[in-house]
Design a protein around this nucleic acid. Structure first.
Length: 342
RNA sequence: UGGGGUGUCGCCAAGUGGCAAGGCAGCGGUUUUUGGAGCCGCUAUUCGUUGGUUCGAAUCCAGCCACCCCAG
C-alpha cells in the first residue's frame, strides 16, 4: 500500500481527507503542527487532531513550531504592513511553513506523498482549481514549488463543501460539526489590528492626503489601512471616501473617490510558475485573480526578468492592492502567481 | 457698540403650521483560509434656549444665549 502523510488540522476537511484517502487504498499517516495562539489554543488543536487520528487509528505526529512560525509568517505580516502593503499570510505560510514542514515530515517518515484538505486538484502534474468554484483554494497555493506538485494529493478537490460535510456526518467524524475555519490562524477574534497594536514601534500616526495633496485628517498608522478600504476612515466628505494608496516614505494615507480605485495595469514580483512553458513566452493570455475572493478576469501577462511580470487587464480592476497576490489561470489550470508590487 | 445673518443627529443638509428626507461618518449582521470591497439593517419622541399664538409649530411672535459677517 502506498503511504501518504496528511496534514491534520483537527477540522472537518482534513478529517474527511483521511477517510477518502483510505477509501482510495492509501496507508495514511497524520501530521499536525501547532503554529500560534495561546498554549490553550494549541492544546485544543492538538487534541482535536489527536481525536481524528485516534478515530481512524492512524499514526500521528504533532510538532509545535510556534517560534519558527512567528519568525517567519508573523514577521512577514508586520513587515508588509509597515511598508504600506497588504499581506496575505496564508499564501506566505503555505509556501514557507506549511508545505515545507509537511514535506520534511514526510521525508523523515520515508513517505513520498503528502495530502491536505484544500479544495484543489492535481492532474498530470498541474495544479487545478477545485471543482466547487465557491470553495476553490488554488489561490492560496500559488506560491508552492512546482517541483513538489507531483507529490501532492488533494482528495477534496472533486467535491463540494456540502458533500464533505455529508461524508463527515455519515462516518461520524468526531469533529463533524465544527465550523469552517476562518480568520488568520494567528489572529484572535478576527482582530488583526489588535495584533498590530502589540507592536507600537512598527507604525505611527500620519496624515490623510487627497490627490491634490490637501491634508484631510490624521490616520492611526499605515498598518491599519489597505487600498480600497472605506470603513474606519472617519472622514465625512458627503460622498464615500476610500483609501487609494499608502506611502511609507511620507507615512501618508491617500484618500479619494471610488473612481480613483480603478486600474488596468500592474506588476507582480516573486512570480512563481506552476505550469511549464509560460515563463519563456513573450506574453500570454490568462485570467487573473487579484485577491482571494474575486472572479478571475481576462488579462495579458508579460513575463519579465527577475521573477517579475507586467499585467494588462482587459477591463479595469478595482483596488489592485500591493502585497496581495495575482494568480493566473488558464481555465482550471493554475499557471502561477506573484506579489502585486504596483 | 451699531447694521445684517445663522443656529435641525459626529459632519453636511432637506423641511416655512400637521406627528423630523437624504448623503457622509459610526454601529451591527452577512460573506470569506488574508486585508478590503459589496450586500442587508440600525442610528435625532427631537429641531440653541425660554415663554407666547394655535386644535396642532422645527416651521409664526417675543426675550435670552452662541457663532459669523459688515461697519468701526
Amino acid at each position: 500500500m502506498e503511504k501518504v502523510l496528511v496534514a491534520l488540522s483537527g477540522g472537518v476537511d482534513s478529517g474527511v481527507a483521511v477517510h477518502l484517502l483510505r477509501e482510495a487504498g492509501y496507508d495514511v499517516y497524520g501530521y499536525t503542527f501547532l503554529t500560534s495562539g495561546s498554549a490553550e489554543d494549541r492544546k485544543e488543536v492538538a487534541e482535536d487532531a489527536g481525536l481524528v487520528a485516534d478515530f481512524f487509528s492512524i499514526p500521528h505526529k504533532i510538532e509545535d513550531i510556534k517560534d519558527e512560525f512567528e519568525d517567519s509568517v508573523v514577521s512577514y505580516f508586520l513587515r508588509e504592513y509597515t511598508e504600506g502593503r497588504t499581506p496575505n499570510p496564508c499564501v506566505y505560510c503555505n509556501r514557507h511553513i506549511k508545505f515545507p514542514k509537511l514535506l520534511a515530515a514526510a521525508d523523515a517518515w520515508g513517505i513520498d506523498k503528502v495530502a491536505t484538505g484544500h479544495y484543489v486538484r492535481v492532474e498530470e502534474g498541474l495544479l487545478k482549481r477545485g471543482l466547487d468554484s465557491r470553495k476553490d483554494q488554488s489561490y492560496v497555493l500559488c506560491q508552492l514549488a512546482s517541483d513538489d506538485i507531483s507529490r501532492f494529493i488533494f482528495p477534496l478537490g472533486e467535491y463540494s463543501k456540502g458533500k464533505i460535510r455529508e461524508i463527515a456526518a455519515s462516518i461520524s467524524l468526531p469533529v463533524a460539526h465544527k465550523g469552517d475555519s476562518q480568520e488568520i490562524c494567528f489572529i484572535p477574534n478576527d482582530d488583526y489590528k489588535a495584533v498590530i497594536r502589540a507592536y507600537p514601534d512598527r507604525y505611527k500616526e500620519g496624515n490623510f492626503v487627497d490627490k491634490e495633496g490637501n491634508i484631510l485628517g490624521r490616520h492611526q498608522g499605515l498598518p491599519f489601512y489597505t487600498k480600497g478600504q472605506r470603513r474606519g476612515i472617519g472622514i465625512a466628505l458627503g460622498h464615500p471616501v476610500y483609501v487609494t494608496g499608502l506611502d511609507p516614505y511620507t507615512n501618508s494615507v491617500f484618500l479619494g473617490g471610488e473612481d480613483e480605485l480603478y486600474g488596468s495595469e500592474f506588476q507582480v514580483e516573486s512570480m512563481n510558475y506552476l505550469a511549464p512553458g509560460y515563463e519563456e513566452l513573450e506574453s500570454f493570455e490568462a485570467a487573473v485573480k487579484i485577491r482571494y475572493l474575486s472572479e478571475a478576469v481576462p488579462c495579458r501577462v508579460y513575463p519579465l526578468k527577475e521573477h517579475r511580470a507586467a499585467i494588462a487587464l482587459s477591463e479595469p480592476g478595482k483596488s489592485i492592492t500591493p502585497g496581495q497576490y495575482g494568480v493566473f489561470y488558464n481555465g482550471d489550470i493554475v499557471i502561477g502567481g506573484g506579489v502585486i508590487s504596483k
